[in-house]
Design a protein around this nucleic acid. Structure first.
Lengths: 197, 197
DNA sequence: CTCTTGACTACACGAGCGTGTAGTAGTTTG
DNA sequence: CAAACTACTACACGCTCGTGTAGTCAAGAG
C-alpha cells in the first residue's frame, strides 16, 4: 500500500506508525526502513538522524492536525466544535503526538500547553464554575488524551476497534453521557472540596 | 536512602522507579542495579531475568494497591470512597502499573479490566444515565488513568508537583469541579447523540 | 575444621542499536 | 559528452543491551 507516495513520505508514515506502536526508543531505524520497504541507509539519507526523523514526524503531525482542525471549523463553524468531539481522521496523528510528548518531544509539549490555554479561555467564557480555570483545563486535557494513550486498553474493554464506525460512535456517546450529567451531587462536591482545602 | 531495606527490596523499588520514568525497555538492568547500589549480576541472581523482574514489580505493586485500597475502605467506609478521589500514597504505584500496562503487562491489563467492570456496576447502581454502561465505565477509566500517564505534562501546565499537598489539592478540586457540573446542555447532548447514531 | 549454602561481584558472549563511509545507478546541468 | 547531483544500497564501527559463567566471601551445620 501507499506505493504512490515518495520514499521519503513512506518512511515518515512508517516512522509515525512504529513510533506510535512501540514508542520512540522501541522502534529502530531498521524496523522503520523495513516497514517502508527501503534500506536503513535511506532513512539516514533523507532525515539525517533518528532524532531529526522524530522532529520531522512531529512537525508533519502538527501541521496535519492544524489543517484538519481548520477544515472542521470551516465546515461546522467555530461554535459547533465541541469539547466532547474528536475527529476520527485525526486519531492516528493525535495518538502519535501524545506518544511523542510522553517520550519527551518539546514540540508536542508546546502543543499540549497551547491546548490547555485554549481550554482555559473556553472555560472562562462558557460559564464553567471553578476557582482554578488553569487546573480545570489541564485536567480535562490529560483526561481526554488518556483515550489516545490507553487506546489499546480501551479497545480491550470494549471488545471493539475505536477507529471503526461502531466503536467510534460508542466512545463518543460515552463522552457525551459523561460530560452531560454531573457525577457528584452539590453536597458531595462541597464535602470533597472541604477535605481538600 | 532506604539503606535499611534488603538488597532485593531496593532492587525492586529501583526497578519500579526507573520502569515508571523510562518505560520497561528504556530502563536497563545495569541502570536499575546502579540505582539500587548493587551489581547488575545481583539483579539477575534475585530475579532471574528482566521479564521476571517486571512480573515481580507488577505483583508487588498490585498487592500494595490492594492493601492501600482496603485500608481506605476500612477508614472511610465503602460509600465514602468516591470516583473522584485518588489516594496520594498510591500515586507512584498507580503510575507504575499504568506504565507497565502500556508496555504490555497482562497483570496490569487484568487489573484495568476489573476496574472497568467495577465502575460499570457502580454506574448501574448509582443512577448514571447511559445506554452503554460498559463504554461509560471504560472511558471514565482511561480518562482517570490519563492523569498518571501524562503526569509530567500536567505538572508542566500547573507549574507544580501534583504529589505535593498544594498540587494534589489543586488537581483534586479540578476533578470535583469537572465531575460536579455538566459541560453540555441537554440540547447539545441530544444533538451530538444524533450525529453519532 | 570441613562442607554447604546463599548473597554478591567480575567478566565475557552474541545480538541489536544508531551512526559513519564508500559506492552504484539514473537524471540533470552546463 | 562530461560533470554534478540525487536517490539509494551495502557494509563496517563502536556501544549498550540482556544474559551466561565462574568465582569470592561470610554464615551456619555437622
Amino acid at each position: 500500500m501507499n506505493d504512490d507516495l515518495t520514499a521519503r513520505a513512506r518512511i515518515r508514515d512508517a516512522a509515525i506508525k512504529l513510533f506510535t506502536e512501540r514508542g520512540i526508543e522501541g522502534a529502530s531505524i531498521r524496523d522503520i526502513a523495513t516497514e517502508a520497504g527501503v534500506s536503513s541507509g535511506l532513512v539516514r539519507h533523507h532525515f539525517g538522524s533518528k532524532e531529526a526523523l522524530r522532529a520531522a514526524c512531529d512537525e508533519y503531525a502538527l501541521g496535519r492536525m492544524f489543517e484538519l482542525g481548520r477544515e472542521l471549523v470551516d465546515e461546522q463553524g467555530l461554535e459547533n466544535v465541541n469539547v466532547a468531539t474528536v475527529q476520527p481522521v485525526a486519531f492516528p496523528l493525535q495518538t502519535y503526538l501524545v506518544r511523542s510528548m510522553m517520550d519527551g518531544s518539546e514540540t508536542a509539549s508546546a502543543m499540549f500547553l497551547q491546548t490547555v490555554s485554549y481550554g482555559e479561555e473556553w472555560a472562562r467564557t462558557h460559564g464553567v464554575v471553578t476557582d482554578d480555570y488553569r487546573a480545570w483545563s489541564a485536567v480535562i486535557a490529560v483526561m481526554k488524551l488518556g483515550v489516545y494513550v490507553l487506546r489499546e486498553q480501551l479497545e480491550l474493554a470494549l471488545g471493539e476497534d475505536i477507529a471503526s464506525p461502531a466503536g467510534y460512535a460508542r466512545m463518543n456517546r460515552a463522552f457525551v453521557d459523561i460530560f452531560s450529567q454531573p457525577l457528584l451531587t452539590p453536597e458531595q462536591a462541597a464535602n470533597l472540596r472541604k477535605d481538600n482545602s
